[in-house]
Write a protein that binds this DNA or RNA. Structure first.
Length: 262
DNA sequence: GTTGTTACCTGTACGC
DNA sequence: TGCGTACAGGTAACAA
């Protein structure tokens, strides 16, 4: 499940191999993956030079000498170099000195391009690393929804998914069903700093591989070994020993400690 | 405007 | 062994 740390890992390895190169050819094999791209035909991309590769939340933003190419990995998207085509290859982008393969079994991912960034990318909130803690508190204060759901809302902060929402809430000692607006400043501030901590640690460990996630070299991340609650249902809490419980919040599987999170 | 639900998609795990 | 079903979740569309 690629979230902020996983996409960051991918972008860091993509950048040096893409920047300055020219797109020689593109092939697309899935309408589903192109469902958000209605603006321009694939020809738009041919011959464009890649200026910069960035991450915005979970989006990979590739700035071209004219326009943008934007990739979202969804649930099972992978970007690999120079591999052979598989049944799950949804796109092939040929560059001067390498070929980029987009693999995506479940096709929740998207590829889009155009003259300007689309509204999907444009309306994202700030990076967790950039938001002022007072602004974070304000955002929470105006929401009645469970804090877990608010963390997943990409317009509040961008890049947080199910794993890191659960991990940050555990570290902050906050019950995932707590109404966001009921968190006072100290707890909201604590949550933001724990969120930043866990995302930073996960980036250092090249992300979490819980099922399909691989970096551009096909390697797994290592942070899954450091999860304190996610995927640990029934196992003892590392702090108090009580079994980790799994509930559903905002339609998502949510892991927490009944003792440590109130 | 916010909040909650459903659909999209397919490999995997599980029960009978 | 084999089959059917539930489940995983990021995002968008929808209803309330």
């Amino acid at each position: 499940v690629p979230e902020l740390p996983e996409v960051e890992t991918i972008v860091r390895s993509l950048a040096p191999r893409l920047e300055g190169r020219r797109i020689r050819d593109v092939q697309f094999y899935s309408r589903q993956v192109l469902r958000h791209c209605v603006d321009q035909p694939p020809d738009f991309l041919i011959g464009r030079r890649i200026k910069k590769v960035d991450r915005r939340g979970k989006f990979i933003v590739i700035s071209l000498d004219r326009g943008y190419l934007v990739i979202h990995l969804g649930m099972t998207g992978q970007v690999l170099f120079d591999t052979s085509r598989t049944p799950y290859t949804r796109a092939i982008i040929a560059l001067d000195d390498s070929t980029l393969m987009y693999e995506d079994t479940r096709m929740f991912g998207t590829i889009e391009w155009g003259e300007t960034l689309t509204r999907r990318v444009d309306r994202l909130g700030p990076e967790p690393f950039d938001i002022e803690r007072e602004e974070f508190y304000d955002q929470l204060h105006r929401r009645r929804a469970p804090i877990k759901a608010v963390l997943l809302d990409q317009t509040v902060v961008r890049g947080v998914g199910n794993i890191y929402a659960d991990e940050a809430l555990f570290r902050a000692g906050i019950h995932p069903r707590t109404r966001a607006a009921r968190l006072r400043r100290p707890r909201a501030f604590r949550l933001l700093s724990e969120l930043i901590n866990v995302l930073g640690e996960a980036i250092k460990h090249r992300g979490s591989s819980v099922s399909d996630y691989r970096d551009t070299e096909g390697r797994q991340g290592e942070f899954q070994g450091f999860h304190r609650v996610y995927g640990r249902e029934g196992e003892p809490c590392i702090v108090c020993g009580k079994p980790i419980r799994r509930i559903v919040v905002g339609g998502r599987g949510t892991h927490y400690c009944t003792q440590c999170q109130r």
